[in-house]
Amino acid sequence: MTTVSGTETDARGAAELLEQATSVTVVCHVNPDADALGSALALGTALRRRGTPVQVAFADPAETPESLRTLPGGDLLVAPGEVSHEVDVLVVVDCGSAGRMGALRDRMSGAREVLVVDHHVSNARFGSINLVDGAAESTTVLVCEVLDAWGVPLDRDLAHCLYAGLVTDTASFRWARPATHELAARLLATGIDPVDVSRPLMDTHPFGWLGMLASVLGSAGLHREAAGGLGLAHAVVRCSDREGMRAEETESVVDLVRTASEAEVAAVLKEGPPRQWSVSLRAKSVVDVSAVAALLGGGGHRRSAGYTARGSSEDVLAALRTALG
């Protein structure tokens, strides 16, 4: 296939590229979630079975998040410092921009081709070849299409990785098309147990998480006039709240805030270094939070997006309300 810089491709084109690759590195974004790591490990597993030398990696954190350690193929993961500087094909999964690769961004320069596989509407098409579909519910949906085009049969290990991304990025199939349910049925037909896949991803937290929620949700706020009168519910997670908590516990807060019936939009501000914040946004149906996040330097999906900001929590909330209109 032709590999002109910035080429758009489909699943078959991506499969042809991987079939011809002499070595592959698969990189997902920093602080990977189930969709990112599930996509990377599914591709890595398929490549290894084909006899292709392959590495899978993410730049940060230093260890795989605990909730993702049940994903098959974890032995493919290598530390960032061990990732080859030169590779035939670098595959970047679930990253809307090169910056999301963190310290592994520099590995792009040593790759003959960079294949981006992603479902973020805001994707910057930063690869030499891009398989991007903003209508896909998860990146694992696109990876499954590549595996199908490649003729890779689905088994329990591959299905586990793919289902993990599918169930989390659709919020347990609340945001899913009929075809997505059909894919889920196909994955379940391999023999995976949906409860066993989902429980460590969404339903398992340490007891201390309950205390964190009591503190954070107790100070939640509601701005009924925000977003054109559709409402904004928000909460702030400070460093003191996060002490002893995993990233999984912090990330779970926004899905509780979004249940407020008076608000179309939910936002959770997570404190990092002094006066720096990671902001998670969720919308129920009307507001496109990816567009809001883009205005503030971030990106994401129509109903799920995020960005980083500096200043006091009051400053960050004020800027968000302005962006919401």
Rank of each mutant, 00 (worst) to 15 (best):
S138Y: 11
T139L: 08
T139D: 09
T140A: 06
T140V: 15
T140C: 12
V141H: 05
L142P: 14
L142T: 14
V143G: 12
E145S: 15
E145P: 07
V146S: 13
V146I: 15
L147T: 10
L147Q: 09
D148A: 12
D148S: 08
A149V: 07
W150Y: 08
V152K: 04
V152W: 01
V152N: 04
P153W: 00
P153D: 03
L154A: 11
L154R: 11
L154F: 03
L154W: 00
D155I: 04
D155A: 07
D155N: 12
D155S: 06
R156N: 03
R156S: 09
R156G: 02
D157I: 04
D157K: 08
D157N: 10
L158I: 03
L158Y: 00
A159M: 05
H160R: 11
C161M: 07
C161A: 08
L162D: 10
Y163T: 11
Y163L: 06
A164Q: 08
A164C: 11
A164M: 06
G165M: 04
G165A: 06
G165I: 04
L166V: 08
T168S: 14
T168M: 07
D169N: 15
D169G: 03
D169S: 10
T170V: 12
T170H: 09
T170R: 10
S172N: 12
S172D: 10
S172T: 14
F173V: 11
F173Y: 14
R174G: 02
W175E: 13
W175P: 01
W175G: 05
P178T: 04
P178C: 01
A179L: 01
T180P: 13
T180A: 04
H181N: 04
E182K: 13
E182H: 11
E182I: 05
E182W: 01
L183G: 08
A184P: 02
A184C: 07
A185F: 01
A185T: 10
R186S: 06
L187A: 12
L187W: 01
L188I: 14
A189E: 13
A189C: 08
A189H: 03
